[in-house]
Design a protein around this nucleic acid. Structure first.
Lengths: 193, 193
DNA sequence: GCCACGATGTTGACAGTGCTTACATATCAG
DNA sequence: CTGATATGTAAGCACTGTCAACATCGTGGC
């Protein structure tokens, strides 16, 4: 309303505004509804349809943004890891992202990504490539494809399990510590004595 | 309708019938709606509320059933693994379950399990214990908690990533094979040449 | 400077959802 | 047979996603 009042009939950059409030609601844990996003943006319920084909399109745009944010977290102040423990830190960062922005994480990975024609696939691919490169750098002797999938699965699975309440950690630091030690334990495991 | 016609006003075992049709719709990939379940069971839209407090309760019951089915898959014709490759088979079974019944798998793990008072927690705990015991048996020298979480995370993460279309496999056998080799690769990895 | 036009936002409406409240029917104890 | 109780029903509320028709704005051709 204030936006409408200030800007008049036209909003200026409604698409960005919608994404921003939607992301905000997501982080705040509020359940996500197109109408609610429109309401909170101070715009009519159908206005979003000028910018997003349907609800899924908005979600996809958010997911793409989330993937870019995740990639930023993973690369911030960091070279590619060279040791297992540096690799573990990368994994911990992944898990922490999921814990810090659970709803967004679920949006990013919780349902099939049927985006043929989107920036979202590209963003997902970039994350994929980063993880693959990191794993391959630390374990040059192993099949990079197998290991990349395994390593990604490891941290992704831990993140999901935490998110789903299947595992308990009293604080985020606790969880991070456990993720780290589990990661290291797996990569250091030796079978049968 | 036939049920109503045959049995008259009362259904006999509506609770079980609702669970059955709901599970059926889930497997068939149809989107899940309480009303649709009631409709397909041939009963009024509000009848389910006699048997389930709300939609979540029905979902929880389905999830519990799914967890029991998963546990059955994991234990069918199988002793506790003693080698890494036997452990990998267990992991492959986990992934295959997710691929075979994707909607159910999502229901089981896709949202917080806020069931204080349910059989669902028990079923989840049994799965957890089985995996922990399996991992601990194969890797007696490692911290069992760390390794169990890591191992579970590994297969769970791969399952999620496949489900979310983040990875491609042309057939279920392909996927199983890749899950197996990734699992083995991770547990055999040696850092830095 | 004016004005039609396309892009943008609004109104109103429809079908579908979860859920509650008040009511109808069947089953079983006495 | 009768009435309490378990079970299913009908009507309705608040909400959702989506569509079609209309209103408004700002910009380019004259």
């Amino acid at each position: 309303m204030s936006a409408t009042a200030k800007r008049g009939y036209h909003h200026g950059d409604l698409r960005a505004a919608l994404l921003a409030t939607a992301m905000g609601m997501l982080e705040r844990g509020e359940p996500f509804s197109l109408r609610a996003v429109a309401r909170e943006t101070g715009v009519s319920a159908t206005a979003p349809y000028r910018h997003f084909a349907d609800r899924e399109a908005l979600e996809s745009a958010l997911a793409a943004q989330g993937l870019r944010d995740l990639l930023a977290d993973l690369t911030r102040n960091r070279e590619l890891p060279t040791t297992v423990s540096e690799l573990a830190e990368l994994g911990v960062t992944y898990v922490e992202f999921a814990l810090r922005r659970p709803a967004l994480f679920r949006l990013m990975f919780g349902s099939e990504c049927d985006d043929e024609n989107d920036e979202r696939v590209r963003a997902a691919a970039e994350v994929h490539e980063l993880l693959a490169a990191a794993v391959a750098g630390v374990f040059p002797d192993s099949d990079p494809i197998d290991l990349a999938l395994g390593g990604w699965g490891l941290v992704h699975g831990m993140a999901c399990l935490y998110l789903d309440g299947k595992l308990i950690g009293s604080s985020m630091d606790d969880v991070a510590a456990q993720a780290r030690s589990s990661f290291i334990a797996v990569f250091a495991a030796r079978p049968n004595g």
